[in-house]
Deep mutational scan, measured.
Amino acid sequence: IGSLMYASIFGNVSAIIQRLYSGTARYHTQMLRVREFIRFHQIPNPLRQRLEEYFQHAWSYTNGIDMNAVLKGFPECLQADICLHLNRSLLQHCKPFRGATKGCLRALAMKFKTTHAPPGDTLVHAGDLLTALYFISRGSIEILRGDVVVAILGKNDIFGEPLNLYARPGKSNGDVRALTYCDLHKIHRDDLLEVLDMYPEFSDHFWSSLEITFNLRDTNMIPGSPGSTELEGGFSRQRKRKLSFRRRTDKDTEQPGEVSALGPGRAGAGPSSRGRPGGPWGESPSSGPSSPESSEDEGPGRSSSPLRLVPFSSPRPPGEPPGGEPLMEDCEKSSDTCNPLSGAFSGVSNIFSFWGDSRGRQYQELPRCPAPTPSLLNIPLSSPGRRPRGDVESRLDALQRQLNRLETRLSADMATVLQLLQRQMTLVPPAYSAVTTPGPGPTSTSPLLPVSPLPTLTLDSLSQVSQFMACEELPPGAPELPQEGPTRRLSLPGQLGALTSQPLHRHGSDPG
């Protein structure tokens, strides 16, 4: 009997000691992992102490058991019943959930998450997105703005933001810190809205009876308010094209079509300037034949640059190039080494500058006005007194259609001029006259002087055409309008007829 009692007592005591040691061994194993994590990542002392304290409290609170892992091991129907039991206190005593059906309560219970916070733990920081609604079931918390405590909340209090009033989550206007050990039930806004969409009859009752104890939403960050730039940057990543407008005076608003859609830094370009900076079609017209890549860069430059609305530039004389043409100036200075066709295309550029300027006046029909002061630039669209967005969009579309028509007509005119030049060069190729044979009589004449090349004649003739079109064909006081194609086609051969009437002889060394 004594040996039996000794064996039973010894066996029970050893089993008890073994169970104690097993729990202690698990605790030390998990604690060792936490300390190894702290050492590996070199976490500083204040945060390291918070980690160790939280682990110790969580171990004593749950005995080292992962409740979520245990809950996920059950089937979904059983999980709903378990969640309904775990959140029964909240669902029974909170006013917004009263009167809900059994199915609605089960769906809500599945969406709730339980959070346990030790003292000093910050649940929400200032500036964080308010993605959830919090219900306090135990403990107390404090809300701070800077170093000032603005509120202390306790059991059955609710904090967050009214989700039904805002389409997008706002930002917190303060820090939420736990004063004691707290148990909180939180539900994400997407989950709550999903359940309320499934039960629309409960939705009206819920929003009407929901009383948020403390609204954390920062009202200064609401979209459309003066301080909402940061919020707009976070939620409006896919922005449309940006529009900046110059201020319109009362006198300017009476004149229709007073602005032109141009790229940034293009205030001095012609009315047909689009795409790359520098001139019509993204580059100076005089350098068009020598740089074919300008047409390839036109599309990307047009689509990537934001639109700006600026006044037209001052008018340019008909014979003056659009500006920024070092290529043609070098050719004029060193005409001995340049291609003979460069002079002809220089005359073509003069005609283009004249036609572009006159067509700009035809479509816009307003006098040039000086540029406004820099303080009046970049007025935002949302400022008071601005035109409605639809009106601005319609004006932009009208300007775009005008620019497209202008570009089409300029292309047709350019093709006409090039065809005339090619026809003239085919009839009378460039050549130098040879020395004529002296006559049989004693009164022999001296050799004839060489005839100037055709490109120079073409430049003079085209300059005469531009001056003739600019000065004589337009009646005084009438708006400057571009001439039609047949009129220009008839004027060019008439001007060139006198020049080509002389018999030109080919030089023996000319390969053409």
Rank of each mutant, 00 (worst) to 15 (best):
G127C: 01
L129A: 06
L129D: 04
L130K: 01
L130V: 09
T131M: 09
A132M: 12
I136W: 01
I136P: 03
I136V: 09
S137A: 08
G139T: 03
I141Y: 04
I141T: 01
E142V: 05
E142K: 06
E142R: 03
E142A: 10
I143L: 01
L144M: 09
G146W: 01
D147T: 11
V149R: 07
V150M: 11
A151D: 02
G154A: 08
D157W: 01
I158P: 02
F159M: 05
F159P: 01
G160P: 01
G160C: 01
G160W: 01
E161S: 03
L163P: 12
N164D: 08
N164I: 03
L165W: 11
L165Y: 15
L165A: 09
L165C: 13
L165H: 11
A167L: 09
R168M: 04
K171I: 11
K171Y: 09
N173E: 05
D175S: 07
V176S: 01
R177H: 03
L179I: 08
L179Y: 06
T180N: 08
Y181F: 07
C182Y: 01
C182W: 01
K186H: 13
H188Q: 07
H188L: 12
L192V: 03
E194R: 07
E194W: 07
E194N: 04
V195N: 01
D197K: 13
D197F: 08
M198C: 08
M198Q: 10
M198P: 02
Y199D: 02
P200A: 05
E201G: 06
F202Y: 10
F202T: 05
S203V: 11
D204Y: 08
D204H: 12
D204A: 15
D204G: 09
H205K: 11
F206M: 03
W207D: 01
S208D: 13
S208A: 10
S208M: 15
S208T: 12
E211L: 03
I212Y: 03
T213M: 05
N215R: 01
N215E: 02
R217I: 03
T219L: 10
T219N: 07
M221K: 09
M221N: 11
M221W: 04
I222R: 10
G224E: 08
S225K: 09
S225I: 09
G227A: 12
S228P: 09
S228E: 12
S228I: 09
S228Q: 13
T229L: 08
E232R: 10
G234L: 11
G234C: 12
G234N: 15
S236C: 06
R237C: 10
R239Q: 13
K240E: 11
R241G: 08
L243S: 11
S244W: 10
F245A: 10
R246M: 14
R247Q: 10
T249I: 12
D250W: 05
D250K: 10
K251W: 14
K251S: 12
D252T: 10
D252P: 13
Q255F: 12
P256S: 11
G257T: 09
E258H: 04
E258V: 09
L262R: 09
L262A: 12
L262K: 12
G263A: 12
G263L: 10
P264F: 09
G265F: 04
R266V: 11
A267Y: 09
G268F: 08
G268M: 10
G268A: 10
A269R: 09
G270E: 12
P271F: 13
P271C: 09
P271A: 07
R274Q: 10
R274S: 07
P280I: 14
G282Q: 14
G282A: 11
S284Y: 03
P285I: 15
S286M: 03
S287V: 08
G288S: 14
G288M: 05
P289S: 07
E296H: 13
E298P: 05
E298T: 05
E298N: 05
P300S: 12
P300Y: 01
S304M: 06
S305K: 12
S305G: 13
P306Q: 14
P306N: 15
L309H: 05
L309I: 04
P311W: 02
F312V: 12
F312C: 06
S313K: 08
P315M: 07
P315I: 13
P317S: 09
P318Q: 15
E320N: 14
E325K: 15
E325I: 10
E325N: 15
P326T: 01
L327H: 14
M328E: 09
M328P: 08
M328W: 03
E332Q: 15
S334F: 13
S334I: 13
S334A: 10
S334Y: 07
T337E: 11
T337Q: 08
C338D: 10
N339R: 12
N339E: 15
N339Q: 12
N339G: 12
P340N: 12
S342N: 11
S342M: 11
F345K: 10
F345C: 14
F345Y: 04
G347R: 11
V348A: 10
V348S: 06
N350L: 02
I351P: 09
I351A: 06
I351K: 05
F352G: 10
F352A: 12
S353M: 07
F354I: 12
F354L: 09
F354P: 08
F354C: 08
D357V: 10
D357P: 12
D357A: 13
S358Y: 15
G360F: 14
R361T: 08
Q362F: 12
Y363T: 09
Q364I: 05
E365Q: 09
L366F: 05
R368M: 10
C369W: 09
P370T: 06
A371N: 12
T373D: 07
T373C: 10
P374K: 12
L376V: 06
L376Q: 11
L377I: 08
S382H: 11
S382T: 08
R387T: 05
R387H: 15
R387S: 12
P388Y: 14
R389P: 05
R389D: 15
R389E: 11
V392R: 09
S394L: 15
S394T: 05
S394E: 13
R395T: 09
L396F: 11
D397T: 09
Q400A: 14
Q400D: 13
R401D: 15
Q402S: 12
N404Y: 08
N404I: 04
N404T: 11
N404F: 15
R405N: 01
R405K: 10
R405C: 12
L406Y: 04
T408E: 05
R409H: 05
R409Q: 08
S411M: 09
A412F: 04
A412H: 15
D413P: 03
T416M: 05
L418M: 03
L418K: 15
L418Q: 04
Q419W: 03
L420K: 13
L421N: 02
R423T: 10
T426Q: 13
L427S: 07
V428I: 11
V428K: 08
P429N: 09
P429D: 13
P430M: 13
P430G: 10
A431E: 12
A431V: 12
Y432G: 10
S433N: 14
A434E: 15
A434W: 10
V435N: 15
T436C: 03
T437G: 08
T437P: 11
G439A: 11
P440S: 13
G441K: 06
P442M: 13
P442N: 10
T443C: 12
T443Y: 10
S444A: 13
S444Q: 11
T445R: 08
T445Y: 14
S446K: 06
L449S: 08
L449Y: 14
P450Y: 12
V451I: 07
S452C: 09
S452A: 14
S452V: 09
P455H: 07
P455N: 11
T456C: 12
T456L: 11
T458F: 11
L459V: 12
L462A: 12
L462G: 11
S463I: 12
Q464K: 04
Q464S: 08
Q464T: 10
S466V: 08
F468T: 07
F468E: 08
A470P: 07
C471G: 09
E472C: 12
P476A: 10
P476F: 06
A478E: 13
P479C: 10
L492Y: 04
G494H: 11
Q495I: 11
Q495H: 06
A498V: 12
L499I: 10
L499Q: 05
T500C: 15
T500M: 14
T500F: 09
Q502R: 12
Q502C: 09
L504S: 10
H505Y: 11
H505V: 11
H507D: 05
H507M: 09
G508M: 11
G508S: 08
G508H: 08
D510S: 11
D510R: 08
P511L: 09
